[in-house]
Design a protein around this nucleic acid. Structure first.
Length: 668
DNA sequence: GACTCGAGTCCCGCC
DNA sequence: GACTCGAGTC
């Protein structure tokens, strides 16, 4: 068979990964070794060899990755829509599976998906119900514990067994309550999407067979980031045909804190003994000087597949290290340098500033604004946190799933309709006692002791109103049109104007409402069979149709983002700021011990390997922390990556008098 | 029950 | 520095 043109563009290792089509395959791909290209070409090659595209499943972790892969595959396959492979994130895949089969687990098919804000409400209520003072355990702490358990696959019963400290015991019993509340409300949280799908596959063999039977080939990107449930899902989906290809890099495992287990990629050969292994080491992205730093740094980690990134590109500039007085000076120096590059003709979109924590970009933003340099802060999802947006979504959620108590309680008196907090409290308590949702109590509010007559009427009116809009949405030909009518009928705009007389206050809030409707409009334009539930699912799993962030990234602007958000991306010019002890590696990681610091080192490694041509590292000698100026210490990673640390694993002795002279360090 | 005020704590990262 | 929480006050 004649080889298509792209075949010649692959090196032997890549070709092996693309051509070996049968059975399990592990592709260990370092940073910048053409991983995405290999996955996409492999899909294309499968289709060339007669596998129907829709029988191929590609799984990624982020929507961005899924979108990119989908677009590339479509381009190479000639873009026939009915010929598209199924490429989605783990979460999107699970939502689709659960929508079809979740009734087996006793949840309604119209289950709501709770986001972080909703979860906090449920957590708070759970703590209150079992009489745990928030001083002992705050809702956010509880959610942290629950997240830890869920991403490791623990049900409440197992969590109770597993609990050691007092706090863990409290949290474990609150977890049981929390889960019961979700179940009663017909709702699931984000982690449940994976957990329940796994549970479904275990308990209902016919469902597992049906879902696994939809595909002949499964490909998984970033396999080193799979958690317990994801690992089991992959096994369940690929166990029959065994045509499983996983791609990953153990040196880029940076998500253990959300349950990712490096073991999964390290033991792939044990799980699939007949697996072939392909190593991709040739790096097409970065200059050798950058790779040398990255290679040197990562050897300080002990548990890893021993491999090196081999540079393909010609020599370039040596990475620089800037040392500044404080974080404001650091921001100034970085922005000054960026402007210099821009003046030389570098395009803004080719520059990224990377940092460890979300408080770091503040001074950078200030400097960039002052300098008039266009920038985009990637990953801060403030829009969907806004009160007005959450109100609108709560209305839509309630219309879609009336048993969703969190949404109901959010808007039952917004705009004010005479159901006071006290009345709501009585209704909620009654619902808990009866073991039903608040929605079911409302029509019989008169039977609840203490509820006033006007409140009874208001409750009934509210039920009627919701029912009416359920009807209208059910028969709606334009979701955004109906939503516009809903907002008008609610008098939401008047309410905003009443609450915030100053136009500077209410206008942006009103615009937020309009943006929800815009998002709905763009959703129904993009999807073949739009539904309210489909829109809410997309919003919940972050598959934002209006994703203006991404548009901005395409636009010509400097990208500001965390190291975690930068994974998978590349830029000609990269600035990695804040290379200080307690920041990178983060204080919490240092306290947690060596393994956690290893993950920080991988995080730093991810940052270094984002750079194609120019890499600049920086640190500040002092930094504001909680309102006080504190002295900092240079990051141990600076000593390691410049080859100034003893090897391997020299005990790190932070010492201000023995400041490193990291090559090229000095004021800008 | 709504309010102020001071103490104590603090967000590391995200689908 | 910003935020939450609980004590204390009206």
């Amino acid at each position: 068979m004649a080889q298509p043109g792209w075949h010649r563009q692959l090196n032997p290792a890549q070709r092996a990964a693309v051509e070996n089509l049968k059975g399990p395959l592990l592709v260990l791909a370092g940073a910048g070794t053409g991983k995405t290209r290999v996955v996409t070409y492999r899909i294309v090659n499968l289709v060339r060899h007669g596998v129907p595209a829709q029988r191929i499943l590609g799984v990624t972790f982020t929507n961005k990755a899924a979108k990119e892969m989908r677009q590339r595959a479509a381009r190479l396959l000639g873009g026939k829509r009915n010929q598209a492979p199924e490429i989605s994130t783990f979460h999107a895949l699970c939502v689709r599976i659960l929508r079809r089969h979740i009734t087996h687990l006793g949840y309604p098919a119209s289950f709501a998906i709770y986001d972080r804000g909703d979860q906090e409400g449920v957590a708070r209520a759970a703590l209150r119900e079992i009489k745990i003072a928030t001083a002992e355990l705050r809702p956010s702490d509880l959610l942290y514990f629950i997240g830890q358990w869920k991403t490791r696959g623990f049900q409440p019963a197992e969590a109770i067994q597993e609990a050691e400290t007092d706090r863990q015991h409290l949290a474990a019993s609150a977890y049981r309550r929390y889960q019961a509340t979700l179940h009663a409300a017909g709702a699931v949280d984000f982690d449940d999407l994976l957990l329940l799908t796994d549970q479904l596959f275990c308990q209902v063999a016919s469902v597992r067979r049906a879902e696994a039977g939809r595909f002949d080939h499964v490909l998984v990107d970033e396999y080193q980031d799979t958690n317990h449930s994801q690992y089991r899902l992959v096994k369940a989906l690929a166990g029959g045909h065994r045509n499983l290809c996983v791609v990953g890099d153990d040196d880029q495992a940076i998500y253990s804190w959300r349950g990712a287990n490096l073991e999964h990629i390290l033991r792939f050969k044990v799980d699939w003994p007949d697996a072939e292994v392909v190593n991709l080491e040739k790096n097409y992205r970065s200059r050798p000087e950058i790779l040398q730093m990255a290679n040197t740094l990562i050897t300080f980690n002990s548990t890893r597949h021993d491999k090196q990134l081999i540079p393909i590109r010609a020599a370039g500039a040596r990475p620089r290290i800037l040392q500044l007085e404080d974080e404001v000076e650091e921001a100034r120096a970085v922005v000054r340098d960026i402007r210099r590059q821009l003046a030389l003709g570098v395009r803004p979109k080719h520059v990224a500033v990377l940092f460890r924590t979300n408080e770091q970009p503040r001074p950078l933003e200030a400097e960039l604004r002052r300098a008039g340099v266009p920038y985009v802060l990637v990953g801060s999802m403030s829009f969907y946190d806004r009160r007005e947006v959450r109100d609108m979504l709560a209305y839509l959620k309630l219309i879609e799933s009336p048993t969703d108590d969190v949404s109901l309680l959010r808007i039952i008196n917004r705009p004010a309709r005479g159901i006071s907090q006290k009345m709501t409290g009585l209704l909620t308590q009654h619902a808990i006692r009866e073991g039903v949702s608040v929605w079911e109590v409302l029509p019989q509010a008169d039977r609840v002791p203490g509820v006033s007559r006007p409140a009874v009427k208001a409750a009934r009116d509210f039920v009627a109103l919701t029912g009416q809009w359920q009807e209208r949405f059910a028969h709606s030909r334009s979701l955004s049109g109906t939503a516009t009518e809903l907002v008008a009928a609610l008098g939401y705009r008047d309410e905003l104007q009443r609450t915030y007389p100053d136009p500077a206050e209410w206008e942006p809030r009103w615009q937020a409402v309009e943006q929800v409707i815009n998002a709905l409009a763009s959703y129904q334009k993009q999807v073949r069979q739009p539904s309210l539930r489909g829109f809410l699912d997309a919003v919940a799993i972050d598959d934002r149709q209006d994703s203006d962030k991404e548009e901005k990234l395409q636009q010509n602007a400097i990208a500001l983002m965390t190291l975690h958000a930068a994974k998978g991306l590349e830029f000609p010019h990269v600035y990695l700021v804040g290379l200080e002890e307690n920041l990178l590696p983060h204080r919490k990681a240092i306290e947690a011990g060596e393994r956690a610091v290893d993950e920080e080192r991988r995080l730093c490694y991810v940052g270094l390997t984002r750079a194609q041509d120019c890499l600049t590292l920086s640190l500040a000698l002092t930094r504001q922390k909680w309102g006080r100026t504190r002295e900092t210490l240079p990051s141990r990673f600076l000593y390691e990556l410049t080859g100034q640390a003893d090897h391997p694993r020299a005990p790190h002795q932070p010492d201000r008098s023995a400041r490193p002279t990291p090559a090229g360090a000095g004021p800008a």
